[in-house]
Design a protein around this nucleic acid. Structure first.
Lengths: 218, 218
DNA sequence: CTGTGTGAATTTTTTCACAGCT
DNA sequence: AGCTGTGAAAAAATTCACACAG
């Protein structure tokens, strides 16, 4: 039923979902590709094409029913259920991630935390027991976890990702600043704020240096 | 001199930079597009095409000098200097960002922090004074800051971004889960781990719900 | 020989434009 | 009349393939 969907299309769907929820909260019942596109800075044709990969959700002359389209897209993205995740790496970054309140409302629940540092293992962070990495495989398989979040130093990340995938994890959210590889049965996405900044400085490179700490006031 | 570079090319350059530094640290002096491509999961032709937008860095029959290519790419990306940044939003996320040790080694220094909450303003976090948002514009202009980092709730983010750009900021790193818009003189990039997860669940959607006892093998 | 630089070919992605449903 | 769904056209990105430099 769903054929081969270009990845670039899948990447856009979550943005549609989020905007549709805003529209729903605003009490909007029907939206045109035009209006949705304006709000998301996407062309109407692209929205229609994207949605068309999955079915015919619109009513000609009218637009899309916000509630139904939202529900359908959530279903398509597999968001109609809760997803368990494990987090590896309980350093500063890992602790920030496990305390981040943005995952749960979207159905992502961190159910296990792992590290190798003896001083971390056995602790409880944000209500979750920190276990030794060696217990991870058993845990992942017992709990049926398919998502892993990696917050270890870059040097250790590939090995951790390998172990996650070997344990049964099929989707990895990587916070380590490196380019990981995974076997074809798994996916990985890297969150890297520094790289995001570095792509923008390209366009800024001829701007003036700001005043340094020793600069005189003007 | 540098013509119109496709954005998709610029996005890849920081990855090349990072891999080249690793190679340099390993003592590798020369690398082929083949070898670099293998390490980054990119085709050799793509690497050669990308680099070609900026000049001829390679030696035929030999490859690219790691040190020189690294330096040249850093210069192209504007990474040969320190960039000041301001952070807006000192909630849980903002405090994690300001304490994140990954920015400074790459030349991004957070020099100012802003919030509107009276209980935050006046505090010092990670050695940086938290000021009221109303002081931001003056600060940004006095210090010559071109980068803003946004860690406020989604509802407030667009207004904050508008104020940043109006203050003179030209690049915004947005941590709020929303789709911001900026005028053409500025750039914005959004860091959104939830969306990253949501693009991956699409491929996982037919996996079993996991609960210990009903684990299934294949 | 090896591996770059680069036009040409191919593939992918986006946009156009309009028939047809409501 | 308004707006979707969708082929066709256009644009963009990627890959091919090879002349040629070291």
């Amino acid at each position: 039923m769903i054929g081969e969907i270009p990845d670039v299309v899948v990447q856009r769907l979550p943005r549609y979902v989020r905007e549709l929820r805003l529209l729903l909260d605003e009490g909007v019942e029907v939206v045109s590709s035009q209006e949705l596109g304006t709000r998301l800075l996407v062309t109407p044709a692209q929205i229609r094409k994207d949605l068309n990969y999955f079915g015919r959700f619109g009513k000609q002359g009218r637009g899309y029913n916000v509630r139904h389209l939202l529900e359908d897209l959530r279903e398509i993205l597999g968001l109609g259920r809760e997803w368990k995740a494990v987090l590896v790496g309980m350093g500063r970054l890992g602790r920030a991630v496990i305390s981040y309140p943005g995952f749960a409302p979207e159905g992502f629940r961190i159910v296990g935390a792992f590290d190798v540092a003896p001083e971390m293992v056995g602790q409880k962070v944000a209500g979750i027991d920190v276990r030794h990495l060696d217990e991870m495989k058993e845990f992942v398989q017992r709990e049926g976890v398919y998502i892993g979040i990696v917050a270890v130093p870059a040097e250790a990340a590939q090995a951790v990702i390998d172990r996650l995938v070997e344990s049964g994890v099929r989707a990895v959210l990587n916070y380590a600043p490196m380019s990981p590889t995974v076997p074809p049965e798994a996916r990985v996405r890297t969150i890297d704020p520094v790289q995001a900044l570095q792509t923008m400085t390209f366009h800024l490179r001829n701007l003036q240096q700001g005043k340094g700490t020793t600069a005189k006031k003007r």
